[in-house]
Design a protein around this nucleic acid. Structure first.
Lengths: 339, 339
DNA sequence: CGATGGTGCTGAACCGGTTAAGCAAGTGGG
DNA sequence: CCCACTTGCTTAACCGGTTCAGCACCATCG
């Protein structure tokens, strides 16, 4: 019960294996009648092309793309962003015969090594890069190895790679103006790590928006997206004498943590403290009070990234593209400041 | 700047490509001196074995294992179980040169199709099966195609496949006895779908434990692990005239949803209602009151599953193995019932 | 009627590895 | 000194596809 090969089909059909290949790939060179006969036999035998054999032939693709996620296990489990993104990629790839290779690492260097290995061993046809950093070594690695790439982030600082980027400032402006209108004059932001480019973009947008909206005092604290960090920093912020009256978090997990701390300290949300999460998952709607959040369609980011990468892999020239930055979804965690 | 092949190395070293292959694989047949020379050249050229070429050779492995997760995108994003499991797999595979192919589907049939395709196209050396169902078509599919497999679940109803299984009844007994001791006589369980075998196991264990502990009334409602279902069912349960005084959830997301509903209805946790989650993620510790949960080391499940599968793939005979079922971690969401 | 061109197929090379078989030279034993 | 054995290497086949060159056959056209 060996798996059938095109040689088996050729024998059964009484033709050469070259003809079988032409027939199966829908290319000219065989008569319609022969083609039908070959296809029928292939179907009967339950034939499917060997992916390694295809890849080995002239210029063949392996039919897989790669994604490396650089987050510790306990964050990844609760951080909705990545699984949504992965779901979007999968949704796009389904039925196209392209598979997703996923690597989870806890170290940035391992990530670069993964790209190098994938390229050298011909394991993927292309990769998607997320979480762009300042001084990011991954771009050099993929350029050197000519690995087709699509970046989620940019467009600055990523060389000439095609990317999907968002305007972080529009939602940030929306958030700050909204909080300003609710009477908040002291807003703290619990952000992601400084070395992520999008963190910096948001920080600048945060400052600009505050000036624009006439909010007196804003400042940013950097964290690592974990619940623990969210708890720790929120506790420190809320126990200051001049504590902020509104908190903006860079992900939803830290926001949930922050909500817990407010509860613990007896600070009422939203009458004494407003909370905004960036990235909305069902989580935000489940906790009480439900969290106001910046809603982004992360699944569609994944779809779009996969679609672009497939094009790049097949040799098409692809334009970078701006995607919807998301918008504010007000819920119960924000409200008028009652001092 | 083509990627170097063993022929390039052979030319540079002045030997045949056969010798290069022997040298690079650490097999006898070349002198120590020649081996060193070849290895040095391979290193200089930045050579790495072509994965497709290796796989194509006699009995070669492709160096990848597959995992299919059958959950809709919005659940997957917040359901910590799978990402923890995946992290564990990755942790085990790191450095072994084996990659993980991930497929996310929203349909059980697509899952079976994925296994078939992977086997037929030689895309993976083996697969891990999770979420065992009653009448599960996947086992026939993998057996027929001789795809090496490790199952998370079982050991009943999965044929002769090696598996990792847990004793669901031990933690369940712990939970029910604990709640009984706190004075609860009416306990409802918001479970996963009925068609999952482990759901049924827990249901039986739940009933047995209740009898054992002398808890008068217990019943199980089936849900689909989503926050929405958790919300809906909890709302229905808590608005009954004889509402339960304790709720046990089959995952943490539904438990968080349940906590929100209790809050909404003004039912105090834990003085009027105790809540237990099954599976602990940082989430349980972040909400207030923090959720009592059955803690399982899901990451280690992933590690162990990957380790077993790698052995199976390499032809070793592998024994099924019982793994730690987890234990109760009491937190603030459970307490004495004050009626 | 011969040159031309298209159709439908075959044969063989090729992709980049692995591996069995063969062979020359050196070594040791009887 | 001959034989057997080991060492270190080469040669060639093979894995399962793709693709190019070539060839026989037939129809068409000037």
């Amino acid at each position: 019960m060996r798996r059938p090969t095109i040689v088996d089909i050729a024998k059964a059909a009484g033709v050469s294996k070259g003809s079988v290949s032409y027939a199966l790939n829908g290319r000219p060179g065989v008569s319609e009648e022969t083609r039908r006969r070959i296809l029928a036999i292939a179907h009967d035998l339950g034939w499917a092309p060997s992916s390694p054999a295809r890849a080995l032939s002239s210029g063949g693709r392996v039919g897989a793309i790669g994604l490396v996620i650089d987050r510790p296990a306990h964050v990844l489990g609760v951080e909705p962003f990545f699984m949504q993104f992965v779901s979007g990629i999968e949704a796009e790839l389904t039925g196209s015969g392209v598979d997703l290779l996923l690597q989870v690492t806890e170290e940035h260097q391992a990530e670069v090594a993964a790209y190098r290995r994938w390229a050298a061993e011909q394991r993927v046809d292309g990769v998607i890069i997320v979480d762009v950093r300042t001084e990011d070594p991954r771009f050099e690695a993929v350029q050197k190895t000519f690995l087709p790439t699509v970046v989620l982030g940019g467009p600055e600082g990523i060389g000439s790679l095609p990317c999907l980027y968002t305007d972080e400032s529009a939602p940030m402006r929306e958030v700050v103006h909204y909080l300003g209108a609710l009477g908040h004059q002291r807003i703290a932001r619990i952000a992601g790590p400084e070395y992520f480019v999008h963190t910096g973009k948001r920080t600048r947008a945060f400052l600009e928006a505050a000036e624009e909206a006439g909010v007196a005092e804003v400042y940013t604290e950097h964290a690592d997206y974990t619940g623990e960090a969210g708890t720790r920093i929120t506790r420190r912020l809320l126990t200051r004498t001049d504590r902020p009256t509104a908190l903006v978090y860079d992900n939803d997990l830290m926001a949930v943590a922050g909500l817990g701390v407010a509860r613990e300290l007896g600070v009422d949300v939203p009458s004494q403290l407003s909370i905004v999460a960036w990235d909305d998952s069902t989580l935000c709607g489940l906790v009480r009070p439900a969290l106001t959040a910046v809603v982004r369609d992360v699944v569609s980011y994944g779809r779009e990234a996969a679609r672009m990468l497939v094009k790049v892999v097949s040799g098409e020239r692809v334009q970078s593209k701006e995607i919807s930055p998301g918008e504010l979804q007000p819920r119960a965690s924000t409200g008028l400041l009652l001092s």
